[in-house]
């Protein structure tokens, strides 16, 4: 792999807290290696800001390997930036060229208020899970793991949905700020397994109700969520969710 260095102009959203009004600020970073990750480039910028006596830029991050779902930057008009199936922390600077201008914003959605700069509050996702994103089994209640054989294809499909990292990029990408891809991933993960069957109806009804309460928009099937999802969660999960929801609506005893 060829390595190169670059100078970049950054246009970054700054906002002191949820009450204040934010604005874009311009920064310049120099001698950025193409081998750095995007967040390492931000580390360099922040060190520079600290050195200059300015307030460094706040952003969420933790694992820096694409699995915790914390990082969340809207880069050049795309959640997590230009690469496919990728998180902000896994984006590397070889995606950019010398002299580029890069615009960085937080996730924008009413249900995700800004805490500071590029950091938003995604606790609405936790509350959607609280509404039913689980199987009600207390510790100690389980039968032998192999007592419930599950066809490999079902297990694999369930796993593919369970890979969602709860990052919220799908919401940020959607013009309606819908959380349907996230929600459908959880509903599918559990609905595809026999263990999830007993609570199938109440789960989907309660989770959808909570989603509406949190102020996420409705789904108009534009597919922007699937295109941006770092874990390639398929939009067919939304179809499954709709089916589950309709089925539950007709027969639910609630």
């Amino acid at each position: 792999m060829e390595h190169y260095n670059m100078n970049l102009n950054l246009k970054v959203w700054r906002q002191k807290n949820c009450k204040s009004k934010g604005e874009f600020k311009l920064y310049r970073v120099e001698n950025i290696s193409s081998e750095m990750s995007f967040l390492e480039m931000f580390d360099v910028l922040n060190e520079q800001l600290i050195h200059d006596g300015e307030d460094p830029i706040t952003f969420d991050h933790d694992c820096r390997e694409g699995i915790c779902g914390a990082c969340s930057m809207y880069i050049n008009g795309k959640p997590h930036g230009p690469w496919q199936a990728n998180t902000t922390c896994q984006l590397h600077m070889r995606a950019f060229n010398d002299g580029d201008t890069v615009v960085v914003e937080p996730w924008r959605a009413d249900a995700f208020p800004v805490i500071k700069d590029l950091m938003v509050d995604r606790s609405a996702f936790d509350r959607i899970i609280q509404a039913g994103g689980y199987i009600s089994v207390n510790t100690g209640n389980a039968v032998d793991g192999n007592a419930i054989p599950i066809p490999k294809d079902d297990a694999d499909a369930s796993f593919a949905a369970a890979m969602c990292i709860g990052c919220g990029a799908c919401v940020a990408a959607c013009k309606n700020s819908s959380a349907m891809l996230f929600l459908s991933a959880k509903v599918s993960h559990l609905a595809l397994l026999p263990q999830g069957a007993p609570e199938r109806k109440s789960r989907v009804m309660n989770m959808v109700a909570q989603m509406d309460k949190e102020g996420f928009g409705s789904c108009t099937n534009t597919g922007a969520c699937e295109a941006t999802c770092p874990k390639e969660i398929s939009i067919t999960n939304i179809a499954r969710l709709n089916k589950e929801y309709l089925g539950a609506g007709f027969t639910s005893d609630k």
Partner: peptide, 18 residues
Amino acid sequence: DQCVAQGVPFAREYGGLL
């Protein structure tokens, strides 16, 4: 056992077992 009951999608063989 506990994790399977919670719906943890462990890898499985074609026979459906873990």
